[in-house]
Design a protein around this nucleic acid. Structure first.
Length: 500
RNA sequence: GGUCGGAUGGCCGAGUGGCUAGGCACGGGUCUGCAAAACCCUUUACACCGGUUCGAAUCCGGUUCCGACCUCCA
């Protein structure tokens, strides 16, 4: 029996604004699409939070027994700088400013993106398609939309006809909760929109102006695809006309995701996605962290602490843990105090994990109450993760289990009073939830065998001093080691140490 | 201005119509030569005003404040 049958997954569906039982189209299989980055600059921490949400979703789906095809795209063309459909292409602008080939820009920031994800222990998606790799498919989709009468060509560009789509198919605005009339009355008049019949229409194919580098031949002349199109095309290609879960940041809900739905319905007549999931924003002093506000910092700055807002650096696993302590659908505010607290909590959890693996089981008089308590916590762990991926609650469960593990380790509770079955489950599930599902690993330390041996030598010297009641020397060893970041811990089985 | 969301204790953050969230910090204790770690105990809550209810921080209405989207952003 699969875990997803015992602990069925519930998802807060942005489309229906309800928490719903997750039922995949093909039993046992899940198609998951997540909007990836536009690679025109370094990723910032807010991006990391979104991708973390879906990294954990991917990990958890697999954990509870689903086979998942996880598609996360790279947008490397078509995303314009300013106003809708009239600004410069983001990649092209960067290329011009830095005097690079557009594809050099793309490669550079794609490499950076991958490096960051690796640092934070993200699992690679099954497919990572790029927009420029799917120009033909995008042209095909534009044709289908045109053939179905939901787009019009003007002067080498093709625009999606939102009003026509709405009167024929309806549903535009459903995801983001917009009312078309409000949108129309609220839209500002912008330059360069004279080609559009209505200000809400959006480009699905743009004519390349003179000097535009990233362009491809099409039935409408040289040009490039519109921003929203690549996601519709690539999700359809790899996951089908209708697939299970589409994720992304809250700020993509409108217009990006709204337009994706419209395009798919217009082209193929199918509602493209059953469950929409949106992760909330990371804030700094209560304001959204964003590139345009200039209050964002890069993952690298966070790790080195090299930023005006940071007192010091924090490890990637600390950051991962910190983010998972809140629910993905809530905003999360960033501060030094919060990070410091997270770092301590994270260490506590990893210490408990290490202790758990040192425990040796020996059956003793059983304690049914304790046994049931541990079993219940282990089940809560999955119940909470299955409840719309409530990592915050799951972590609370892990801490309660940590208390138990610590008590077993120091003899305050007798491990043998658990049934062997419970102990095995504890060891397996506690470990796998932390490492496989939450993706938390012991923070990289600069430990190596030489420092190991050196510290052990000092421990022996100190041991001798203690035997001779020469506490001045033993304390000096301990205190001076502490000053250089080595903490000694005396326990019943001798002295252990940890590096900061 | 329109739409949507939020306001929880010193800090961060879950959650819920009645029963301990959790982490960090603070205080007390056990252990220790003294520490550290670990464990136990403990203090500080649900923005404001009304209403529904036997009972609301949780539901409803209003007020204030904050945020997101409405233009590119995860």
């Amino acid at each position: 029996m699969n875990l997803h049958e015992t602990f069925p997954l519930y998802i807060s569906n942005s489309l229906t604004r309800q928490k719903e039982v997750f039922n995949p189209i093909n039993p046992g299989h899940v198609g998951l699409y997540v909007c990836g980055p536009t690679v025109y600059s370094y990723v910032h921490l807010g991006n990391v939070r979104t991708f973390l949400t879906f990294d954990v979703l991917y990990r958890y789906l697999r954990f509870i027994g689903y086979k998942v095809r996880y598609v996360r795209n790279i947008t490397d063309v078509g995303h314009l700088v300013d106003d809708a459909d009239s600004g410069e292409d983001k990649i092209a602008k960067k290329a011009r400013l830095e005097n690079l080939e557009p594809m050099e820009v793309v490669q550079m920031y794609t490499n950076d993106f991958h490096e960051v994800l690796r640092t934070f222990n993200f699992i690679d998606p099954s497919i990572e398609p790029s927009a420029t790799g799917h120009i033909i498919e995008q042209i095909e989709m534009v044709k289908r939309i045109l053939d179905n009468g939901f787009a019009y060509e003007v002067n080498g560009s093709v625009y999606f006809d939102v009003l026509k789509f709405q009167s024929a198919k309806g549903g535009y605005g459903e995801l983001s909760g917009r009312v078309l009339e409000d949108l129309i009355s609220n839209t500002r008049e912008l330059d360069g929109q004279d080609e559009k019949r209505n200000s809400l229409d959006f480009a699905i194919w743009k004519k390349a102006e003179a000097g535009h580098i990233m362009k491809w031949p099409s039935p409408w002349g040289m040009g490039f695809p519109g921003w929203h199109l690549e996601c519709s095309v690539m999700s359809t290609k790899y996951l089908g006309e209708t697939f299970d879960i589409h994720g992304g940041g809250m700020d993509l809900k409108f217009p990006h995701h709204e337009c994706e739905i419209a395009q798919s319905v217009a082209a193929d007549g199918q509602k493209p996605v059953n469950y929409w999931m949106h992760s909330n924003m990371l804030t700094v002093n209560g304001q959204k962290m964003s590139k345009s506000l200039g209050n964002s910092f890069s993952p690298r700055e966070l790790i080195t602490g090299d930023h005006a807002l940071l007192n010091r650096g924090y490890g990637p696993m600390t950051v991962r843990f910190f983010m998972l302590q809140s629910h993905y659908s809530s905003t999360l505010d960033f501060s030094n105090d919060a990070l410091e607290a997270a770092e301590k909590g994270y260490k506590r959890l990893m210490n408990a994990l290490a202790s758990l693996h040192k425990l040796e089981y020996k059956a003793a008089a059983s304690d049914d109450k304790l046994n049931a308590e541990v079993q219940e916590l282990l089940n809560d762990l999955l119940r909470n993760l299955s409840d719309d991926l409530n990592t915050a609650k799951a972590i609370a469960d892990l801490f309660e289990l940590s208390s138990k593990i610590n008590s077993f380790a120091n003899g305050q509770l007798n491990l043998g009073s658990l049934s062997e079955e419970t102990f095995t489950l504890l060891k397996d599930r506690f470990t796998r939830i932390i490492t496989e599902v939450l993706g938390l690993l012991p923070e990289q330390s600069n430990e190596n065998s030489v420092t190991d041996d050196l510290v052990k030598l000092f421990i022996e010297l100190r041991q001798d001093a203690r035997k001779n009641k020469d506490f001045a020397t033993s304390d000096k060893i301990r205190d001076d080691l502490a000053k250089i970041g080595v903490t000694l811990k005396d326990g019943p089985e001798g002295t252990s140490f940890s590096l900061n």
